[in-house]
Design a protein around this nucleic acid. Structure first.
Length: 565
RNA sequence: GCCCCCAUCGUCUAGCGGCCUAGGACGCCGCCCUCUCACGGCGGUGACACGGGUUCGAAUCCCGUUGGGGGUACCA
C-alpha cells in the first residue's frame, strides 16, 4: 500500500466511524472541516462567515475536531500569491486559526492545489481508463454557439456524451478538456441545512474536470482534496449547492464516500444584491453622477487613470476595484479624505476600525441565531452555542447599522489595554495622526472616546484636532463664535483660563473651567464657543479632559485665534 | 427559459399545533439625564406574503399562487 492509498484507506475508515455516529454522539465523533478560498481577491465578509462556521463546527469538538485551510488556486489566470497572503492575514486577525494548512503545515503538507497536480492527474487517468471520463474537443466558440442555439430553441443546454453535434476528433489549435461522464441517474443530497434534495438524472451534465491548461477544475480538485484530507463535513455557501450533485457523482466514480455537506445562506446587501466588490465601483459611479461630472478629462488626470479606462468604468464596462480606490479620494467630502467606499472585505472593516471580535460576533448572527434573546456572544460562547440547527435557509442581509452598534458595544466593554492593542493593529494599516502619538496620549484619547465612538476610524478622525491645526467649520464658527455672544464668552474664558496657576492639569483647571461654565444664563452656554475655538467643531469630548490634554498653550492660542476671526 | 432552495416587524431573528391580542435586537420616533456629541434609562412605531385545505385549534402541517435567492462557465 502506497502512502496515498493508505491515507485513502484511513479516510474511509475514519469516515465510517463518524458516519454511524452523526446525530447520535457528535461530541465524540471525529469532525474535520475546511475553509477553501480561492486566492483571487481579498477575504470577503461572506467568506469570513463560512470560515467562522467551519471553524466553530470543528472546534466544538475540542477533542478531535480539526479545521483545515486549503487554497484553491486552480484558476491560473486570476489567482495571486498576494491574495493568498491577504486571506491568511485576515483569518489570523479574526482569530480563526487552522490545524492544517499554509504556514502550519500538516499531514498532507501541500495546501495549495497548484502543488497537487500529480495527485489530480493520477485520478484523472484512473477515470479516463475506466471510461468514466472522456476528452472533449470543442473550442470555446463552438461551445458558445451550441449554447446560443439551445437558448434560441428555449431548451436548457447540457453537455452530454451522447448529445448530437459533438466534436468527435481533436482539432488543430484546440487543446482538449476532460469531462466527467456523469451518470444518468437521480442523485440525492442529504444536506445538513437544506435537507434531502434530489435532482433527476436527465438534469445532469458532463462537467469539465480538467481544463485545457492541464489544471483540474474546482469540481475535481475539491473532491480529491476533501477526500485525501479526510474532510468529514463541508460547510460552504449556497451558491455551491447545485455543484454538490456533480461532486457526489464524482465521489461514486472514484469509489469514495462523500463527506456531509451543509450549504450556508448567502450574505447579501440591503437591496438583496449579492455582496461583492462591485459595490465599490457602484458607489464611486453614483458619486460622480451626483456631482454632475460629464467631462472626465480632469478626473482622469487627477486620478492617474487613462481617459479610456475612466470612460469604460463609467460605462460599467469594468468594476475594477483599483479604479474605485483611485477615484474615491477625489470625490465627496475631499477635506476629510474623500468618498468612503463601502466595506466589503475583511480588511476594509479592519481599516475602518472594527474590532475582530465584533465583526465575528456580527457575522455569526447573519444567518444563524443562538436561540434565546442573545445578541452579544463571545467567541467562547459561540463555541458553546453553535449548532447547524440554528442556521437559516434564507439569504441574510448585511446590516451595517447593527454592525456599527455592535462594534460600539464591544468598544465600551473592552478594557483600555485591549483597546490600546486594537489601536495598534489599526494604526498598522491606517495613517491617522494618532498613529504617531505617545502611548500615554493614545490612552488618554481612547479613554475620552471609549463611550462615544463607533469605530476607531471615526475616533481617529474626530481626534485630529489634538494633533493638527483644526479646520474651522464655518457653520459652527458662525453659530457659536460670531453670534450668540460667542466672543464675550470666549474673552471671559480666556481671561479665566490664562490665569490658571501651576501645571496645566485636570485638577488645576477644573475649578476655573467650572467658573467659565457658570457664565451665561444656561449652564454651559460658554462651552460651545470654547469647543469651536479649540477644535473647529461643535462636537468634542468633555471640555475638562480635552483642554487638559490639549495643553495650556494650544488652548490659549486657539482661543485667541478664534477671537480674531 | 430550465433546475434547485426559500418566505415572521425596514433589517437580523425567537417561535418547531394551543403558552402568540407573535418575543428580542438593530434602526427610527418621543421623553429623561446632560457643557456639545455620545453613553445610559424609560416609552413608542412595526411583521406571520396571498389563497385554499387538514385540525376542536395553525405563524407553526399539506397544496397552489406570488415574491425573493441560487445554479445554468475550460470561475470558484
Amino acid at each position: 500500500m502506497n502512502p496515498t492509498e493508505s491515507l485513502s484507506f484511513l479516510h474511509d475508515f475514519l469516515f465510517n466511524i463518524t458516519f454511524h455516529f452523526v446525530g447520535d454522539v457528535p461530541m465524540s465523533s471525529l469532525v474535520k472541516t475546511r475553509f477553501a478560498p480561492s486566492p483571487t481577491g481579498y477575504l470577503h465578509v461572506g467568506g469570513a462567515r463560512t470560515a467562522l462556521y467551519s471553524w466553530l463546527f470543528a472546534r466544538k469538538n475540542a477533542d478531535n475536531g480539526k479545521f483545515i485551510l486549503r487554497i484553491e488556486d486552480t484558476d491560473q489566470v486570476r489567482s495571486t500569491a498576494e491574495s493568498a497572503a491577504g486571506i491568511l492575514s485576515d483569518l489570523q486577525w479574526l482569530g480563526l486559526n487552522w490545524d492544517e494548512g499554509p504556514v502550519v503545515g500538516g499531514a498532507k503538507n501541500e495546501y495549495f492545489q497548484s502543488m497537487r497536480l500529480d495527485l489530480y492527474n493520477k485520478h484523472l487517468a484512473e477515470l479516463l481508463a475506466k471510461g468514466l471520463a472522456y476528452e472533449a474537443y470543442e473550442s470555446t466558440a463552438q461551445l458558445t454557439a451550441m449554447r446560443q442555439a439551445a437558448e434560441k430553441e428555449k431548451r436548457a443546454f447540457r453537455y452530454r456524451r451522447d448529445m448530437p453535434g459533438r466534436q468527435l476528433a481533436a482539432q488543430e489549435g484546440v487543446k482538449p478538456v476532460v469531462r466527467f461522464a456523469m451518470p444518468y441517474k437521480d442523485i440525492t443530497v442529504n444536506d445538513l441545512i437544506l435537507g434531502n434534495v434530489t435532482v433527476t438524472g436527465s438534469e445532469h451534465d458532463d462537467i469539465v474536470i480538467r481544463k485545457s491548461d492541464g489544471f483540474p477544475t474546482y469540481h475535481f480538485a475539491v473532491v480529491v482534496d476533501d477526500h485525501y484530507m479526510c474532510i468529514t463535513h463541508v460547510l460552504r455557501a449556497q451558491e455551491h449547492f447545485m455543484n454538490t450533485f456533480k461532486h457526489i457523482g464524482l465521489y461514486e466514480a472514484l469509489g469514495w464516500l462523500p463527506p456531509q455537506h451543509g450549504h450556508l445562506p448567502l450574505v447579501v446587501n440591503a437591496d438583496n444584491s449579492k455582496m461583492s466588490k462591485r459595490e465599490k465601483a457602484k458607489a464611486v459611479r453614483a458619486e460622480i453622477q451626483k456631482a454632475g461630472i460629464k467631462d472626465f478629462t480632469d478626473l482622469a488626470a487627477k486620478s492617474g487613470l487613462g481617459l479610456k479606462d475612466l470612460q469604460d468604468f463609467m460605462a460599467k464596462k469594468t468594476d475594477a476595484v483599483e479604479f474605485a480606490v483611485k477615484l474615491a479620494p477625489l470625490l465627496g467630502p475631499v477635506s476629510s479624505g474623500g468618498l468612503k467606499l463601502p466595506e466589503i472585505d475583511v480588511q476594509d472593516f479592519r481599516r475602518s476600525g472594527y474590532l475582530p471580535e465584533a465583526l465575528l460576533n456580527f457575522v455569526a448572527l447573519v444567518g444563524w441565531a443562538p436561540g434565546g434573546d442573545r445578541e452579544i456572544v463571545s467567541s467562547q460562547e459561540l463555541l458553546d452555542l453553535f449548532s447547524l440547527d440554528g442556521i437559516q435557509k434564507t439569504p441574510g442581509r448585511f446590516d451595517r447599522k447593527k454592525l456599527a452598534w455592535m462594534n460600539g458595544e464591544y468598544i465600551r466593554k473592552a478594557s483600555l489595554d485591549r483597546l490600546l492593542e486594537v489601536l495598534e493593529q489599526f494604526n498598522a494599516v491606517t495613517d491617522y495622526p494618532i498613529k504617531k502619538a505617545d502611548r500615554s496620549v493614545q490612552r488618554e484619547i481612547l479613554t475620552m472616546y471609549q463611550e462615544r465612538m463607533v469605530t476607531l476610524a471615526e475616533m481617529a478622525e474626530n481626534a485630529r484636532f489634538f494633533f493638527e491645526e483644526p479646520t474651522m467649520d464655518p457653520k459652527a464658527v458662525e453659530k457659536f463664535i460670531t453670534k450668540n455672544d460667542g466672543r464675550t464668552f470666549l474673552q471671559s474664558a480666556q481671561a479665566i483660563l490664562s490665569a490658571v496657576g501651576g501645571p496645566w492639569s485636570k485638577d488645576n483647571i477644573a475649578a476655573p473651567l467650572e467658573q467659565v461654565l457658570a457664565l451665561g444664563e444656561k449652564r454651559g452656554a460658554a462651552a460651545q464657543p470654547i469647543r469651536v475655538a479649540i477644535s473647529g467643531n461643535s462636537v468634542t469630548p468633555p471640555l475638562l479632559e480635552t483642554l487638559a490634554l490639549l495643553g495650556r498653550e494650544t488652548t490659549l492660542v486657539r482661543m485667541a485665534k478664534a477671537l480674531a476671526m
